[in-house]
């Protein structure tokens, strides 16, 4: 079984990213013509870049230095990879999460 259990975060993110490459390539091909007409527009921030920026805003701390941000970026990449794996898993509408929730009232 190709479980990602034995992979490091980077390996795992890399492999999932590699799996997603064909989709990225199609999108890139479709937009290639439009991009040729434009002159060197700045590359838009990736979702991970945006998340990293949000974390810096929400949990601002001077100790969030370059090394710390690199660690957090790695975690964000892992999460993004996991997200793809979870979304790709086939679930039916009837597959419930299995929460344990009970109505509650105080004993009288």
């Amino acid at each position: 079984m190709s479980s990602p259990d034995r992979l490091s975060r980077r390996e795992f993110a890399g492999r999932v990213a590699a799996g997603a490459a064909p989709l990225t390539s199609i999108a890139a091909f479709e937009s290639a013509g439009a991009q040729e007409k434009k002159v060197a527009e700045p590359k838009p921030p990736s979702p991970v870049d945006r998340q990293l920026e949000l974390i810096q805003q929400q949990y601002s701390d001077k100790r969030l230095d370059a090394a710390a941000l690199a660690e957090i970026r790695e975690d964000l990449e892992t999460q993004a990879a996991r997200s793809l794996v979870l979304s790709a898993f086939r679930l039916t509408n009837g597959d419930e999460p299995g929460y344990v929730v009970r109505a509650w009232r105080k004993d009288e």
Binding site: R63, E71, D75, L76, Q79, G98
Partner: peptide
């Protein structure tokens, strides 16, 4: 690494958590 180990998790999408819980039930 623990000092910065929780930051990214603050942004896990709710759908991912719920999908993980749905898959867990199938795993069981």
């Amino acid at each position: 690494e623990d000092r910065v180990g929780a930051h990214a998790a603050m942004l896990i999408p709710a759908k991912d958590y719920i999908n993980a819980c749905r898959i867990r039930k199938l795993i069981q």
